[in-house]
Structure formats: C-alpha cells, structure tokens
Amino acid sequence: MAFSATCTASSRSYFEALEVAERRALHSYFDQHIVEDEELGYLALDEGDYCALPAHLAARVVHTIHGSMLDEF
C-alpha cells in the first residue's frame, strides 16, 4: 500500500537542513543541530561554531546528528 502526502515548505526546509547536517557530520568533530526558526523554517548549525549553544538556540533544537570524526589517534 502506498501513501501520498503533500510536502509543505516547512517540511522541505527540515529535510534540506537534515541533508546538510548529515553531510557536515561526516567531516566534523562537532554535533550538527537542526534548529527551528520562525522566519527561515529549519536550518543546520555546527556546534563548533558556537562552542556551547546559547540557551535561545538550544531551546529550538529539534534534531541532533553526532559528529563522526574521532580525535583518539
């Protein structure tokens, strides 16, 4: 059985941000966060750009992808 669903701009921006975050995470030590923004929809943020995320950003995180690089060598 197949289902069909319409893709809204909000869900499209989420999946675009998810794709960016997954791609970045492969080459980063830092976690990649998908953050909800009222004006832009969703966007991907690199935790390394902010050190610890400020509270106003951390409260809007909807998904996190852990960085894939290891610093153990």
Results as ranks from 00 to 15, higher is better:
2 A>P: 15
2 A>F: 15
4 S>C: 02
4 S>M: 07
4 S>A: 06
4 S>E: 14
4 S>L: 11
4 S>F: 09
5 A>L: 11
5 A>T: 09
5 A>Q: 14
6 T>K: 12
6 T>E: 13
6 T>D: 11
7 C>N: 08
7 C>A: 11
7 C>P: 00
7 C>D: 07
8 T>D: 14
8 T>E: 12
9 A>I: 10
9 A>G: 12
9 A>V: 09
9 A>N: 13
10 S>Y: 06
10 S>Q: 13
10 S>L: 15
11 S>E: 15
11 S>D: 14
12 R>I: 07
12 R>N: 09
12 R>C: 10
12 R>T: 08
12 R>H: 10
13 S>G: 09
13 S>Q: 07
13 S>V: 06
14 Y>K: 05
14 Y>V: 07
14 Y>G: 08
14 Y>F: 15
16 E>R: 11
16 E>T: 08
17 A>K: 02
17 A>P: 03
17 A>W: 01
17 A>N: 04
17 A>D: 05
18 L>E: 14
18 L>A: 10
19 E>V: 00
19 E>K: 07
19 E>T: 09
19 E>Q: 13
20 V>P: 00
20 V>I: 15
22 E>W: 01
22 E>V: 00
22 E>L: 12
23 R>H: 10
23 R>C: 04
23 R>D: 11
24 R>D: 07
24 R>W: 10
24 R>M: 08
26 L>D: 08
26 L>E: 14
26 L>W: 01
26 L>F: 04
27 H>R: 07
27 H>A: 09
27 H>Y: 06
28 S>Y: 08
28 S>T: 14
30 F>E: 08
31 D>H: 07
31 D>S: 13
32 Q>K: 06
32 Q>F: 03
33 H>S: 05
33 H>W: 06
34 I>E: 03
34 I>Q: 02
34 I>R: 03
35 V>A: 02
35 V>C: 02
35 V>I: 14
38 E>I: 12
38 E>L: 13
39 E>L: 15
39 E>V: 14
40 L>V: 06
41 G>A: 04
41 G>T: 02
42 Y>D: 02
42 Y>S: 07
42 Y>I: 06
44 A>Q: 06
44 A>C: 14
45 L>N: 01
46 D>L: 05
46 D>G: 05
46 D>Y: 01
